[in-house]
Amino acid sequence: MKITVKSLKGGSALIEVTEKTSIMEVKKLVEKDINIPAPQQTLVLFGKTLQDDKLVEDYPKIKDGTKIYVAIKKQESLHVVLNKFLRKYYSEDQCKLIVDEFMRNFQSKVHSLSLDDLERIAKSEMGQ
């Protein structure tokens, strides 16, 4: 079946799915067509968020020609992610000290990178 996925910021994709297609697979197809990274997508159908681990068949309202909307989640900063992780093990004051020191060290190391270093990192991340 073919469904349309529309971005709230503009752009749409017509994608082919089956009942056994997972919502995560739908997101990956949308990523290719609309260029929104799958982890940043929230797929919405009739006001309900579609869960990544479910299949298309788990949502009986998804039929041939259905329109699904994709909202873009704001990415959390490294600072926020570190703080959330550390809160499991440390107090709020300890987390603040650890995260602040980490960010100072991280920024110092990033600023010391040369253009060649950045190019080498980019190439290795792109699999070249």
Results as ranks from 00 to 15, higher is better:
41 Q>A: 10
62 I>G: 00
62 I>E: 01
86 L>M: 13
111 H>K: 13
91 S>H: 05
19 E>S: 05
88 K>T: 08
108 S>E: 13
98 I>M: 14
97 L>R: 15
104 R>C: 07
23 I>L: 08
119 E>S: 09
93 D>A: 12
85 F>L: 09
73 K>I: 04
65 G>V: 09
115 L>R: 13
108 S>D: 11
71 A>E: 01
83 N>F: 13
97 L>C: 07
45 L>F: 02
81 V>L: 14
11 G>F: 04
34 I>M: 15
4 T>N: 11
40 Q>S: 14
43 L>C: 07
106 F>A: 10
55 L>H: 05
53 D>C: 02
52 D>L: 09
113 L>D: 09
8 L>R: 15
56 V>E: 08
76 E>M: 10
118 L>I: 15
2 K>W: 09
106 F>V: 09
49 T>D: 06
47 G>P: 02
105 N>C: 10
59 Y>C: 02
125 E>H: 06
114 S>Y: 06
69 Y>S: 07
86 L>V: 12
14 L>C: 09
117 D>P: 14
102 F>I: 08
8 L>N: 10
18 T>W: 02
91 S>Y: 09
116 D>H: 11
103 M>G: 04
85 F>N: 11
66 T>D: 00
107 Q>E: 12
102 F>C: 04
78 L>S: 08
46 F>L: 03
10 G>C: 11
124 S>R: 09
117 D>S: 12
55 L>S: 01
42 T>F: 03
106 F>R: 13
115 L>C: 06
57 E>N: 06
99 V>L: 08
44 V>W: 00
86 L>E: 05
17 V>W: 02
75 Q>V: 12
38 A>W: 08
72 I>L: 13
11 G>P: 04
14 L>E: 15
19 E>H: 00
61 K>D: 04
107 Q>S: 11
2 K>H: 13
24 M>K: 12
64 D>Q: 13
1 M>E: 03
18 T>G: 05
82 L>V: 05
26 V>A: 06
12 S>R: 05
122 A>P: 00
98 I>H: 01
95 C>D: 12
30 V>R: 00
78 L>N: 09
29 L>E: 15
26 V>R: 01
3 I>G: 01
41 Q>V: 07
6 K>F: 03
114 S>F: 08
15 I>E: 07
66 T>L: 05
97 L>G: 06
76 E>Y: 10
84 K>N: 13
54 K>C: 12
125 E>D: 04
11 G>N: 08
30 V>S: 06
98 I>Y: 09
12 S>E: 15
90 Y>A: 11
117 D>Y: 12
105 N>I: 07
4 T>G: 02
39 P>C: 06
45 L>E: 00
125 E>G: 08
94 Q>I: 08
93 D>S: 13
92 E>Q: 11
3 I>Y: 02
44 V>C: 02
44 V>I: 15
51 Q>R: 01
68 I>A: 01
76 E>A: 10
91 S>A: 11
36 I>V: 13
122 A>E: 04
2 K>Q: 15
49 T>Q: 07
122 A>R: 14
119 E>V: 04
124 S>N: 11
10 G>T: 03
28 K>W: 03
75 Q>L: 11
58 D>W: 02
106 F>G: 03
102 F>M: 06
33 D>G: 06
116 D>E: 14
101 E>S: 15
15 I>T: 09
75 Q>W: 02
44 V>S: 00
54 K>I: 03
23 I>Y: 00
81 V>P: 00
19 E>D: 15
34 I>W: 02
37 P>H: 10
16 E>W: 03
84 K>Q: 11
19 E>F: 00
22 S>Q: 08
53 D>E: 13
